[in-house]
């Protein structure tokens, strides 16, 4: 077993692309689910809106990154209206059903040959946002001994985590305000909030929009990092990875989704590399598991860990135990 490789790749996974992208997606879900109690099972759709909006504006229309990203965010706002208007008046489960379906429809549309001129079909879009790395002011990598980063990675991390921190600050400012109080109250009991003169449906819409915008930012960061985007990156499990990250870190906490995303990708990477190492070094016989199967088993193990967490620490890492205990009433 090569422990230094295991540790290095685990640490790397905790701070690079996926950790950033899913931190943003989970921050969005935290607004929806953690603070407002909305079940958006289609966060992948909002991420796709951001990613494809940016990608299409850059590759098809030659826009620069700034306006293109803004366009992606506008698309996510439109998506929120489109999904929210018919469903937010209804019971919570309607939103869940509609969003999960909508995200899947979006993925299939961008994947279809019908629109491949614009969306690139199943191959997706390439050569997006070269300007992102061209503008990289960092001219040398960073070697921390146990783990090292190229200048490209560093640049993405600076921008990506910068965006994450900005979103956390926004979340913090909003949830401590009277606006945040209304959302938290809606999470507990909509009718009580209505009886106090608040337009609940409109607040839920605001929540859906804001969380969707955070999701879109995740999609945008994904696109910029890869300089490409593929439709299957927005399959249904993408939403549930973000949910897992949120629950792991603790819903309804500002830091919850961010720490959760880092841990989630750390655990995935750790189990993946450990299993591969163990197989390569014959610690695990191939009749039991081979290298290809390890890629699936890592999710099984991550799921098992999450289940254990829910049993022993229901509130997630950052959650408030006293609050969770109130659910029993």
């Amino acid at each position: 077993m090569n422990w230094s490789i295991i540790i290095e790749s685990t640490l790397e996974a905790m701070v690079t692309k996926n950790a950033v992208v899913f931190a943003l997606a989970a921050i969005g879900l935290n607004i929806h689910y953690g603070y407002t109690g909305l079940l958006n099972f289609g966060q992948a759709g909002f991420m796709a809106a951001g990613a494809y909006g940016t990608g299409i504006a850059i590759t098809q229309w030659g826009w620069t990154i700034g306006p293109a990203a803004l366009f992606g965010i506008v698309l996510s706002v439109l998506l929120a209206f489109f999904l929210g208007l018919p469903t937010l008046r209804l019971r919570a489960d309607y939103l869940a059903i509609v969003t999960i379906a909508a995200a899947e429809i979006i993925r299939r549309i961008v994947k279809s040959t019908q629109y491949s001129e614009v969306t690139g079909g199943s191959g997706g879009l390439n050569g997006i946002g070269r300007g992102f790395y061209d503008n990289n002011p960092i001219d040398s990598g960073l070697d921390l001994g146990i783990v090292s980063f190229s200048e490209r990675e560093l640049w993405f991390m600076v921008v990506g985590w910068g965006v994450v921190v900005l979103c956390m600050v926004l979340t913090y400012l909003l949830v401590r305000s009277p606006w945040g109080r209304v959302l938290k109250a809606i999470r507990e009991d909509e009718d009580a909030v209505r009886s106090l003169g608040k337009n609940v449906t409109w607040y839920k819409m605001q929540s859906l929009i804001l969380g969707g915008m955070f999701g879109a930012l995740g999609g945008i960061m994904l696109t910029l990092e890869q300089q490409s985007v593929q439709p299957d990156q927005f399959f249904t499990p993408t939403t549930f990875f973000a949910f897992t990250a949120l629950i792991l870190g603790g819903a309804g906490r500002v830091f919850g989704p961010v720490v959760g995303s880092m841990l989630f990708w750390g655990i995935i990477q750790f189990t993946d590399v450990s299993l591969r190492q163990a197989i390569a070094n014959d610690h695990i016989p191939t009749w039991l598991m081979d290298g290809v199967q390890a890629g699936q088993v890592r999710f099984i193990i991550a799921g098992g860990l999450l289940a254990a967490l829910m049993i022993f620490r229901q509130q997630g890492l950052f959650g408030n135990k006293r609050e969770v205990a109130l659910d029993d009433h």
Binding site: A192, S195, G197, V200
Partner: peptide, 22 residues
Amino acid sequence: AYKVARKGLVRTFQLTKALSKL
């Protein structure tokens, strides 16, 4: 309902709706 409340007609509920986690 929310407009009715704003007009000054406010109600409470038979089954209490205290917002537990606030």
